[in-house]
Design a protein around this nucleic acid. Structure first.
Length: 450
RNA sequence: GGGGGCGUGGUGUAGCGGUUAACAUGCGGCCCUGUCAAGGCCGAGAUCGCGGGUUCGAACCCCGUCGCUCCCGCCA
């Protein structure tokens, strides 16, 4: 980094705006974006913004005409370094303090006008915001979202590590599809071809065969579904975990609900106020256990509410039905979350274990958050013969998945796990209408830039 | 893949058969002894996505097309 050696005050340590209260009376160096400029005849006010807050910087024009002219030439959202003295001033609405400006360094003058104004009250359309995402992300709400997401991931890891989990990183380039049905992105791979992983499913199960007991992974997954909705992406961050020595899928669910409760608890502690301020959401730590509804019960409720399920969808629930169930559970149990359990084999993959006493049903579950599907989980079938038979029943040939099937030939504990969409969890947590807002950069059928 | 909706100054909207196409915000200029989502005045900026049609006349009606968006399917 090139430094101006003759610039007054350079070499000082940066003070974050959030810490200025402790620096009253001191000379400080503050760096950030120019939020607004009020350039008056005698007085000039700059509001500077960094990730910790905003502060007013004042300059009395006649005190330094050169500096005054420099200020007048500034444009909103320019990147600035300012030097000045922090003074307590109860009249200032922004934090009751201000900085008396002494000198100013323009690190990067923003062009005017801005294509997207991060300080504006009205929001451009979602697509336009994606075009200018780096300016859109300067909005305080966006910053908060990613601070919350960081806390979410940290809390996840804390809970996993406390419970003996090992983190894995499975490959995203695969020679064969990991699950049938879902659409795969095919890529050129030297002379042949390969696929982008649409799930770490097989690899996290391999860790069970490897004796890892409990594993988790946070990583990208790819789906070549041309879905045009507010909750689908072609690339997203998958949260996956798998645990051994379970008795049934109920062990997985009871782990997940306590894990989620811990996440909410930690996030509320650290970001509850910011979430209230910038999202208008009073974060509620969910009670455990979450309500559980069997598919049969869910159907009965929907029927009772006069919800018309599409006739051809025997054994599944459509998004409208999920939203209604979410409302129902919220009203009846006061919980935003609900497990829908015991799904018919017709709508579940071959590796889901089936109930001994009812082979038409799987030991599986979905988790709905505010009526949005955020998780699918199950106990897996770990017995080779049965797994092979179930694959064949689903019309799958053993050959392409033989590597996977082999995991279960040399000693493999009973196990289960789940996958959760990180961005969907953020939608539920912060009450967001669109998944595009919940991710750093959105990837969809029509969006590959920036 | 199927269906619905929407494309009007930079942005967000109003107008929905005859308007100098309106408003907000932003931008530029001037004014204002401390402002604080500042305020006041002035100004620039839109052939109303594109193509065709109906009509004396189209931003407005019709057809096509492109783009975006939402819903369904599929899922996380």
């Amino acid at each position: 980094m090139v430094k101006s050696t003759f610039f007054e005050g350079d070499g000082m340590e940066r003070t974050l705006i959030g810490n200025l209260r402790q620096a009253i009376g001191q000379k400080v160096k503050v760096q950030g974006f120019l939020h607004v400029l009020r350039d008056q005849k005698k007085m000039q006010f700059l509001v500077l913004r960094d990730t910790t807050g905003m502060v007013q910087v004042a300059h009395y024009r006649p005190a330094n005409e050169d500096l005054a002219n420099q200020i007048s030439a500034l444009t909103p959202e320019s990147a600035l370094t300012i030097f000045g003295t922090v003074v307590d001033n109860p009249i200032v609405k922004l934090g009751g303090l201000e900085i008396q400006l002494e000198s100013l360094l323009v690190n990067n003058l923003a062009e005017a006008p801005l294509p997207l104004d991060p300080t504006a009250e009205t929001l451009p359309s979602i697509d336009y915001r994606m075009d200018w995402r780096y300016l859109d992300l300067r909005r305080r709400q966006s910053l908060t979202l990613f601070q919350v997401e960081t806390a979410v991931e940290m809390a996840m890891r804390e809970y996993w590590v406390q419970n003996g989990f090992i983190e894995i990183q499975s490959p995203k380039i695969m020679g064969a599809p990991s699950e049938s049905g879902a659409e795969l992105f095919e890529i050129k791979y030297f002379e042949g071809k390969a696929y982008l992983a649409q799930s770490p499913q097989f690899y996290k199960q391999m860790a069970m065969a490897a004796g890892f007991d409990r594993v988790f992974e946070i990583g990208p997954v790819f789906r070549a579904d041309p879905s045009f909705t507010s909750r689908h992406m072609t690339e997203f961050t998958g949260i996956d975990m798998e645990m051994s020595w379970i008795d049934s899928h109920d062990d997985v669910m009871s782990f997940q609900e306590r894990w989620l409760q811990y996440i909410y608890k930690r996030v509320k502690e650290t970001h509850g106020e910011a979430i209230q301020e910038y999202f208008g959401v009073d974060l509620v730590v969910p009670e455990v256990p979450f309500p559980r509804l069997t598919m049969a019960e869910a159907y009965a409720i929907l029927k009772d509410q006069n919800y018309a399920l599409p006739p051809e969808k025997k054994g599944d629930i459509d998004p409208g039905g999920e939203r209604l169930l979410g409302q129902y559970v919220k009203e009846k149990y006061g919980n935003d979350f609900v497990f829908i359990i015991d799904w018919p084999i017709a709508v579940r993959p071959f590796y889901h274990m089936r109930h001994e006493d009812n082979p038409g049903l799987t030991k599986s579950f979905d988790l709905l958050g505010s009526g949005l599907e955020i998780t699918t989980g199950a106990q897996r079938e770990h017995r080779y013969d049965i797994l092979l038979r179930q694959a064949e029943e689903k019309g799958l040939h053993a050959e392409p998945i033989q590597d996977y099937l082999n995991f279960f030939r040399y000693g493999c504990p009973p196990h289960g796990g789940f996958g959760l969409g990180l961005a969907r969890l953020m939608m539920v947590m912060l009450n967001l209408p669109n998944i595009r807002e919940a991710v750093y950069l959105f990837r969809g059928p029509n969006r590959l830039t920036p």
